[in-house]
Amino acid sequence: MRRQAPLALLGCALLLVGCGGSDGRSSTLTVFTAASLTDVFAQLGEELEEQRPGLDVRFTVAGSSTLAAQLVQGAPADVFASADERQMAVVTDEGLADDPTVFAANVLTIAVPEGNPAGVTGLADLAREELAVALCAPEVPCGAAAERLLVTAGVEARPDTFEADARAALTKVELGEVDAALVYVTDAAGRPDAVDAVEIPQADAAVNEYSVAVLTDAPDPDAARAFVELLLSADGRRLLADAGFRQP
């Protein structure tokens, strides 16, 4: 409710804009992207716009599951980048895209308020009763990853809240309302002034793989392929690495 209605409106607006090109040379590339990729993709979009005058790259940003649901409902888009393989499978199973490429991986870290006031040193601290702890809800990818990680580490966490996505969990850390939250490494790296990250030695037990695909009904398949090529190029890899992503 909170996200889908505005996004649906945005989708409609993009469709109208896409049809409104009058001189025949300007075109719009619509990229549906998982929220954690926002910053990297914005830079790639600018790069592609420089390479191809007249091209306008637009992003629809949301959780991967929301985006997948919108694509299945017929939202018009050229490229889909998903934060986990399950949501990419939702789209490919419907025949809306084929041949997705895994291009990056992300692991979890413990985000704590700046200065780490509660003295969190590892996963075991998430079981401390007196700490306020946020995890992602098991329904969303980062929550599923957190579940796997905690089971592997044998930690019985005592969360106070299950957040709807990693960014919401991070916000609670930034506001100082929780002492620790399990979020993606890249989420914490994106806010170096507001949160500190406590590295998790067992993090490899839960790796999320990011995949990208050109949609079968892409209005501009040519530009869509160019965007994916740029993402997979040395430039793209460097940007992803700078943001804290791993190579798959």
Binding site: M1, G63, A69, E139, T161, A164
Partner: peptide, 20 residues
């Protein structure tokens, strides 16, 4: 926030169910 039994109301439960 969202915790079953304490703070998870129906609309919150609906939103999370929608994800899966």
């Amino acid at each position: 926030g969202n915790f079953p039994g304490t703070t998870q109301t129906m609309p919150v439960a609906v939103y999370l169910a929608l994800q899966r």
